[in-house]
Nucleic acid binder design. Structure first.
Length: 507
RNA sequence: GGGCCGUUAGCUCAGUCAGGUAGAGCAGGGGCCUUUUAAGCCCUUGGCCGCAGGUUCAAAUCCUGCACGGCUCACCA
């Protein structure tokens, strides 16, 4: 590994520490208090109490024979005061010469308050816990009122994602995103567990993919000499479980879609899906509203969030309207009056809406009208329901209108958050739908919509009527943390390889 | 894949319009300083200016291509 000048200097310090008889990477620490606990102890009358704190050196201010520094752990920062007469010449000099910002240290001493009023550990014993050879890209920071102003902290978005460890080390607010994410997932589990749902795990490696419209990643099992797909959804396996006698199941897991990357798309993302026997899509709408608002209250303490400058209230009831109404309102087009792809395409052209020719009727509605015109404006929580049958091959038709299905999608902040329907449980109808999909999309990609015969077989045994629901966890966390990009809420988002030689070989 | 913008020291950024010895702050190194907190003061190291070509007496700067990133459009039932 090639070292920079700064890294070489730090390596010399490490070697010097060893020469002084210090272990720069000791196996154990002896922490008695976190920074926050130590401060709380002082405030509870603990002046003069002895504590041992640990963490990263975050700032150092040398004043000659006394030095102030801040040590940061996960709970926050605490100031330490190192004095020559307390530590002795040898230790004090070792600190001055061989300790750097970013090093993990352990400091033992009595709690005191400095002349300027800051609670401080007056150190009597100092140890190195882990020498940092590469300097962290953090600048100084300053408290201005109750805000912290940071100077020259890491801002390059690419570097932040590529070296997320450094991003996290330097930015407490980035760590907070992932705490909120963890609490969100935990709250969803609690919500569903309390309502009788069973958490299950279904295959990620699947011989036939399905349950969504997306291109899969393909992989291979060597010993079986079998091509496998990384799942694009959990749906078809979860519904098999309803056949098996479980009435309410859910899974929170990773799905993989071999498609474009955008502010709301990552090739792997986290999806919640649940299926509940004897519920229809109306009941699932209620459950959706209740779940999102309950989770928000538990995680954020409120149902009112700010997203991209908008104030959004997640409390039920949400606005509900049919997809047809929403499109009519946004475009003036009643798509039910144009029952063929050609007619609808003409109507779009006449309305001045640019659209790619050669798309199916369903795609024109879904892509051009819904995604293009309606979705970006659905800022407040909105449920659109009753979707065209053609774009919903797994949903049950409306009894009074066979051209539409009992399906809804929920939108918040201009993003699709959830997709749900009264699940199709008629095996013969389901088989027809698969065949239709195959016909409709054969022109584009024959392989993209395979028939899952085992799924049909499962349904042949009888599947109770049920409501199903899928929600993008990443997008929900974007809303909860007011982040404009899905990459901000994924610890290690997908990036191109940096190695340019490698990139050249790929192309 | 298209368009626009970006890539300069470890970090944050000037310098590019109008070609002429590569800069600042912080970090780092050497000093002074036993209550500082973006500590301060003096001195100081550090650069393939993303990569490769081209134009020119001369290129961080102009031109072309490429790589990576951001935004955006397209694609993604």
């Amino acid at each position: 590994m090639e070292l920079s000048d700064l890294e070489r200097q730090r390596l010399e310090k490490l070697q010097r520490l060893r020469a002084r008889g210090w272990d720069p990477y000791p196996p154990r620490a002896e922490r008695t208090h976190s920074a926050a606990q130590a401060i709380a102890l002082y405030e509870a009358g603990g002046e003069g109490q002895e504590v041992t704190i640990t963490g990263r050196l975050r700032s150092i201010r040398v004043m000659g024979k006394a030095t102030f520094a801040h040590v940061e752990d996960e709970s926050g920062k605490i100031q330490i005061l190192l004095r020559l007469n307390l530590l002795g010449e040898e230790v004090y000099e070792a600190f001055e010469r061989d300790f750097d910002l970013g090093d993990f240290v352990e400091a033992k001493g009595r709690l005191m308050r400095t002349r300027t009023g800051e609670i401080t550990v007056e150190v009597t014993r100092l140890r190195m816990l882990a020498k940092a050879l590469t300097p962290l890209p953090w600048g100084k920071e300053q408290q201005v009122g109750d805000r912290i102003v940071r100077y020259s902290a890491l801002t390059d978005v690419e570097e932040r994602y590529r070296q997320r460890y450094a991003d996290l080390a330097v930015h407490p607010e980035v760590r907070e995103i992932f705490r909120i994410r963890a609490r969100t997932v935990a709250a969803i589990r609690r919500f569903l567990d309390e309502r009788g749902f069973l958490e299950v795990e279904t295959p990620i490696l699947q011989p036939v993919y399905g349950g969504a419209a997306a291109r899969p990643f393909i992989t291979h099992h060597n010993q079986l000499n079998q091509d496998l797909y990384l799942r694009i959804s959990d749906e078809l396996y979860l519904k098999r479980l309803l056949v098996g006698g479980f009435e309410r199941v859910y899974e929170i897991g990773r799905d993989f879609r071999n498609e474009g990357v955008s502010f709301k798309h990552n090739p792997e993302f986290t999806m919640l899906e649940f299926y509940a026997a004897y519920l229809d899509y109306r009941a699932v709408m209620d459950l959706c509203e209740e779940m999102v608002s309950t989770v928000a209250r538990e995680v954020l303490g409120t149902t009112v969030i700010t997203y991209e400058g908008h104030t959004i209230d997640l409390a039920p009831p949400w606005r509900r309207m049919t997809l047809r109404e929403a499109i009519l309102e946004a475009s003036g087009i009643d798509y039910t009056r144009y029952p063929t792809a050609d007619a609808l395409y003409q109507a779009l052209r006449e309305a001045g809406i640019p659209a790619q020719p050669g798309q199916t009727w369903g795609k024109l509605i879904d892509k051009e009208l819904l995604s293009g015109l309606v979705e970006p404006n659905l800022i407040q929580p909105t449920i659109l329901y009753d979707y065209p049958r053609d774009i919903s091959p797994l949903a049950k038709a409306k009894p009074e209108d066979p051209t539409h299905v009992e399906r809804f999608e929920a939108f918040i902040g201009g993003m699709e958050i959830a997709n749900a329907f009264s699940e199709l449980n008629d095996p013969l109808d389901q088989e027809q739908r698969f065949l239709e999909m195959g016909r409709l999309y054969r022109a584009e990609d024959e392989e993209a919509h395979p028939m899952d015969e085992d799924y049909i077989r499962a349904m042949m045994y009888g599947m109770p009527p049920n409501g199903g629901f899928g929600m993008g966890i990443d997008r929900l966390v974007m809303l909860f943390t007011d982040r404009p990009s899905i990459r901000e809420v994924i610890l290690f988002p997908h990036l191109r390889p940096r190695d340019t030689e490698h990139a050249k070989r790929e192309t």
